[in-house]
């Protein structure tokens, strides 16, 4: 009986609804946590998976040895690799294309790379308007790596002990 009355009281005074409204009312007055993107930016993890880059050794030789592990592991089949044997017997790529439209930024290529050649950088602010430029060729990737090498090296160093 008491439970019944209690239930009816709660139902007709709309107590639970008012409680809910008090909560949203409190949030209404709270300080807003929105980050206004182009002016403000959130901190980015060193493991961030953004635009791809191909790296070089300090001497200037490219790291990629065309082992094709990344091509094999890529779940979206975004990577295409052709290779040749150089005169000195080393194995290097002639073609290293990443179709950025296909890529799902899973980071498997980076994980699988034995020489840390293909990496994903912090850069995520880029866009394509048509199909052609969306394919990142070897030259573009190497250039991109050269441009951001200091940042890439720093990120790898921070993350090194966990790898």
């Amino acid at each position: 009986m008491l439970a019944f009355l209690k239930h009816q009281f709660k139902t007709f005074t709309l107590l639970e609804l008012l409680k809910g409204m008090v909560i949203t009312g409190k949030y209404f007055l709270k300080k807003k946590i929105t980050v206004r993107y182009p002016e403000e930016k959130t901190p980015i993890s060193p493991r961030f998976r953004g635009h791809h880059a191909l790296r070089r050794y300090e001497g200037g030789e490219e790291r990629c040895i065309a082992c094709k592990l990344c091509e094999a592991v890529c779940p979206a089949n975004a990577i295409t690799i052709e290779f040749e044997q150089r005169d000195d017997g080393s194995r290097r790529t002639t073609q290293y294309d990443i179709d950025m439209f296909k890529c799902i930024y899973c980071g498997f290529c980076e994980e699988s790379c034995p020489t840390d050649a293909i990496v994903e950088t912090r850069v995520f602010e880029y866009e394509f308007h048509e199909r052609g430029p969306s394919i990142m060729t070897k030259d573009k990737l190497l250039d991109f790596g050269d441009k951001h090498e200091s940042q890439i090296a720093e990120d790898r160093a921070v993350d090194a002990k966990y790898r």
């Binding site: 840390d116 790898r156 090194a160 002990k161 966990y162 790898r163």
Partner: peptide, 13 residues
């Protein structure tokens, strides 16, 4: 805690 792997030649890159 995860113990950091000993840094050998390759880890250092």
């Amino acid at each position: 805690d995860v113990k950091p792997i000993d840094e050998d030649e390759e880890g250092k890159k």
